[in-house]
């Protein structure tokens, strides 16, 4: 069985995908249905959930459901975009290390090891503070702190690919390493790249929500973390507006859970030798 069919039959993967699809579809449906944007102040501040406003309103009288449905997309976008960046860097570094082995591998992997044990939040906070928050800087920063994990995964996978018969045959025939990398390795990377993107998305979303919660993300974009930042700024929990804190937080948790499940499914079907 191929990797993809194994993953797609894994119940964990199916459950994760179902949660993710459910969340995005509800959010999409609300965006199509609702007449408001996230900037419209449509009612009195701090209205509790009702039929008109299923998740109530915030401190400026904006519909929280609208904010959240937009936030889900922004959060996922930041997560996916940075994960794609992470996977790209990871692919390059990982394949390089695995193909050339020797000193290159040793140096790259020592750096990766080291970067992995520096708390990513600290580096991300410092970099965001210097680069100034905008959505693209946030993506860039997440990619900077996220690539080592991906590189390690890709390297391990590449090493197992290198042992495949056709690669060994090609090497025996005297093909250059670059040729092998381009011809045999990279094209067979799809599963690991997809896997790496999803794994990266999880970490990226957690980091993005954290940065936004602290008010260091792009505060113009309504992400789930940003909603929490503004809710906290207006003391929503104590003012009785629990819906402003509870629902966005729950949504982050759901999305992370879905991605965790998918990650698990991928990890246990990849069978990468460490």
């Amino acid at each position: 069985m191929s990797f993809a069919s194994r993953v797609s039959r894994d119940p964990l993967f199916q459950a994760g995908l179902a949660i993710l699809l459910l969340v995005t579809l509800i959010a999409l449906a609300w965006r199509l249905y609702s007449p408001w944007t996230s900037k419209d102040m449509v009612g009195a501040p701090f209205q509790s959930p009702s039929i008109e406003h299923p998740l109530g309103t915030d401190d400026l009288g904006r519909d929280v459901m609208t904010l959240v449905s937009e936030g889900v997309f922004i959060t996922l976008f930041v997560g996916l975009a940075s994960a794609i960046l992470i996977a790209t860097i990871g692919l390059l570094v990982g394949v390089t290390a695995a193909v050339f082995r020797g000193l290159v591998d040793a140096i790259l992997m020592r750096i990766v090891d080291f970067l992995l044990s520096i708390p990513s939040l600290v580096v991300a906070l410092i970099l965001v503070a210097i680069l100034k928050p905008s959505i693209f800087n946030v993506i860039l920063v997440i990619a900077i702190v996220g690539w080592p994990a991906s590189a390690r995964l890709v390297r391990a996978y590449t090493l197992s690919l290198m042992e495949a018969p056709y690669v060994e045959a090609s090497r025996a025939l005297g093909s250059s390493l670059t040729h092998i990398a381009l011809r045999h390795l990279i094209p067979n990377m799809t599963p690991i790249v997809l896997g790496s993107i999803l794994v990266g998305t999880r970490a990226a979303i957690l980091l993005e929500s954290g940065l936004s919660f602290l008010g260091l993300g792009d505060l113009e974009r309504v992400s789930l973390g940003t909603i929490l930042f503004y809710a906290r700024r207006s003391a929503a929990l104590i003012s009785g507006a629990y819906w402003l804190i509870v629902f966005p937080g729950l949504l982050i948790m759901l999305i992370i859970l879905a991605l965790t499940l998918i990650t698990l499914a991928i990890e246990r079907n990849l069978k990468v030798k460490e």
Binding site: F213, G249, M253, I256
Partner: peptide
């Protein structure tokens, strides 16, 4: 538990 954001 691991999916819940720590600040939340």
């Amino acid at each position: 538990l691991a999916s819940a954001p720590v600040f939340w």
